[in-house]
Simulated assay, not measured.
Amino acid sequence: MKIIAVIPARYASTRFPAKLMQDLSGKPVILRTYEAAVATGLFDEVFVVTDSVIIYDAVTVSGGKAIMSMKEHESGSDRIAEAVEHLDVDVVVNVQGDEPFIDSEPLAKLIQVFKADTAQQVDLGSLMCQITAEVDINNPNVVKVVVDQNGFALYFSRSVIPYPREKNVGVRYFRHIGIYAFRKQALLDFYRLPMQSLEASEKLEQLRYLEFGKKIKMVETTHAGIGIDTPEDLDKARTIMSYKL
């Protein structure tokens, strides 16, 4: 089984323009993320997929592997699908470009889902972590997921799911962490399928997979990730990196 990591990397960013090219202790954020993915030792190959010549050059000049995206895409899945369409690969893991402090343990658990899936019932794997704070449960920017008894996703929503009509019945709330592992065919299917009403309403691309019957296996983790979305996040990342170097 050939397993690769793909890091989608857009230069433009609404909240923090060019964040992936910001300096993080002597190297751009995207290069730090790329090197961290390679250092896990989990992948046969690691690629950055980008629509930016600036990002492409930053990675390749340093000896990394990058693929230029030829088309405009609405989602990360679309961008990754275009990149891997002609690659000989079985499982593709999507690593977030703005998370340079990669924890290998949850990624290893995602990969194990596919190694253990001898019947090939799993189309995608993804991560979730428990949330208990009311502010997070009610926050529409925190995407929630509910799963069945076997850990397969039933639905994702920005709303509170399940709705707590009855209290004290042991319901656990889970935040979806947007790291995915895909079978290659699931990615290619997504690329060719149209957006449906649920995805359009919630603005959550993973709903397209569910709407067309794909099986998403969720893996629980306590690692929520350290993303860089603002200049303040970058300052914190620089402090963390200073302890690691």
Rank of each mutant, 00 (worst) to 15 (best):
L110R: 04
K203N: 14
I111Q: 06
Q149C: 10
G151A: 04
L31C: 01
D88G: 08
S104W: 02
E35L: 10
A66D: 00
S197L: 12
F182P: 10
P164Q: 05
P194I: 09
Y243R: 04
G64D: 01
S25N: 11
M128G: 05
R183Q: 13
P231D: 04
L198M: 14
G227E: 09
A186W: 13
I54R: 13
I228Y: 01
A108D: 09
P100I: 10
F101Q: 01
R172V: 10
E232Q: 13
D117Q: 06
M68F: 11
I216G: 07
P106V: 03
V91K: 11
L210F: 05
S69P: 05
L31W: 01
G64V: 00
A133N: 13
I226E: 00
S159T: 05
I179Y: 03
K71C: 07
R192M: 15
R208H: 11
S77F: 15
S157Q: 08
K203W: 09
N168P: 03
I131H: 00
K236L: 15
P17Y: 07
E134R: 05
P28Y: 03
V91P: 08
A83E: 05
D57C: 03
M68P: 05
V146A: 10
K65I: 06
K115N: 13
V92R: 09
K109Q: 14
I3R: 11
R158A: 02
I30E: 00
D51L: 02
Q185N: 12
R32K: 15
I240V: 10
L124H: 11
Q112N: 12
D136V: 04
N139I: 09
A119M: 13
N141W: 09
Y180V: 08
V59K: 00
M68L: 14
D229A: 11
M218Y: 05
A66Y: 00
D235I: 15
V171M: 07
D78N: 14
S52Q: 02
A237F: 03
D229E: 09
V84A: 12
V135R: 15
R238F: 10
V29I: 11
A153W: 05
P28R: 05
A153K: 01
S13D: 11
S157I: 08
Y243H: 05
N141Y: 13
D98C: 07
H176T: 04
M70W: 12
G151E: 01
F101P: 00
D51T: 01
A116N: 15
N150D: 10
I179M: 09
A119H: 08
I30C: 01
D136Y: 02
R192W: 07
I102N: 01
V113N: 07
A37S: 09
K236A: 10
R172D: 03
K19G: 06
T230Q: 03
I137Q: 00
S62D: 00
A9S: 07
F156G: 02
H73Q: 06
K244S: 04
F47N: 00
S69E: 07
Q22W: 08
L87V: 08
K184C: 13
G227Q: 06
K214L: 15
S25G: 14
A237Y: 04
Y155T: 13
V49I: 09
L42C: 09
T118W: 08
L124A: 10
A108G: 11
M218I: 12
V122L: 06
Q196I: 14
Q196T: 15
Q112F: 06
K144V: 02
G76N: 15
V113M: 08
D44E: 04
L87C: 10
E166N: 12
T132V: 05
A181S: 14
A9R: 00
V61A: 06
Q149M: 14
F182V: 12
